[in-house]
Nucleic acid binder design. Structure first.
Lengths: 134, 134
DNA sequence: TTGCTCCTCACGTCACGTGAGGTGGC
DNA sequence: TTGCTCCTCACGTCACGTGAGGTGGC
C-alpha cells in the first residue's frame, strides 16, 4: 500500500493527492515550476515539489499566471531578503484582488442582463404557446 | 465624413463602432460568423453583419463559445420554426446562467480567501517592520 | 514617389488535452 | 509473452495578437 507521506511520491500518487493529470505535472516541470527527481525514467516527487504544487494550485485559483507563480516561488526559494519577498508577494496579491473584484462586477452585470433576457424569452414562449393553442 | 448609418461600413468604422480590432473581425469571418462583401480587396460590412456582430459580442459576455454563437445565429437566419429556435436559445441561455453562477460562487470564495491571505500578510509585514525598528 | 489603409499568410500566446509510438519491470 | 505504467514527441484547442511582406488608390 502506497504511503502518501513517504519521502517520494510517484506521478500517480501526486495526481490522486492534488487532483491533477500527469500531463499537468509534466507541463509544470517543463515550465520549471517543480523539479521531481528521476528513478530510471520515472519521476519521483519530493516534499518540496508537494509544497510548491500546493502553492501553484492556490495561486491558480487567484488567477496568477504560471510564470508569475514561478517567479514568486523562486523568490521564496532563495530565502534571502524575507521582507522584500513578502512585500512583492503582497503587492502582487493586491493587484490580483483588484482584478478579481473587477471580474466579479462584470460577471454580476452579465448575470443580471442574462436573467432579463431569459425573462423576456419565457414571456415570448408563453405568448407563442398561447397563439399556437388557439 | 463617414456616415455610420450608411449601408456599408469599412473595417475601420466597424472597429470604432464596436470596440474590436480588425483582426477580430477577420477572425469572425474565417469562423463564418459574419459575411462582409468585397469591394476590390476591401471588406464592406452590411446591416446584417452589424446585427450579427452585436449579438456575438453580447453572447461573449455570457460566455458562449464562438462556435455555439454561430449555430444559434444560423438558426435565426434560416427563419423557420421560430418557436423551436427560441426554445433552443432559451435552453442554451439557462445552461450559461447556471455556469456563470457557478463561476461567481468560485470567484467569491477565492476573493474571501485571498483577502484573508492579504490580512495575514499585512500583519506579518507590520511585525517584521517593528522587529527591524528595534 | 510617398503615405495611408487594406490585404494574406503564419507563427505566437496560455494551459494544458490527446493520441502515437516506444521502454522498463513485475 | 501479456499487462501495466511510465516515458517523449508533437499536434490540437480557443480566441485572438503580432509581425512580415505585399497591393490598391488618392
Amino acid at each position: 500500500m502506497p504511503n502518501s507521506d513517504a519521502e517520494f511520491l510517484t506521478i500517480r500518487q501526486m495526481c490522486a493527492r492534488f487532483g491533477v493529470t500527469p500531463r499537468t505535472l509534466r507541463f509544470y516541470e517543463a515550465k520549471e515550476l517543480i523539479f521531481p527527481v528521476r528513478k530510471g525514467q520515472s519521476r519521483l516527487y519530493t516534499r518540496r515539489d508537494r509544497g510548491r504544487l500546493k502553492l501553484i494550485l492556490r495561486g491558480k485559483r487567484f488567477g496568477f499566471a504560471l510564470e508569475e507563480m514561478r517567479q514568486l516561488l523562486d523568490l521564496y526559494d532563495r530565502g534571502d531578503a524575507q521582507v522584500e519577498q513578502l512585500r512583492r508577494t503582497y503587492a502582487a496579491a493586491q493587484a490580483r484582488l483588484a482584478e478579481m473584484e473587477r471580474q466579479r462586477a462584470e460577471l454580476d452585470e452579465a448575470i443580471v442582463e442574462l436573467k432579463a433576457d431569459l425573462a423576456w424569452g419565457a414571456d415570448r414562449l408563453a405568448t407563442l404557446g398561447r397563439a399556437a393553442a388557439e
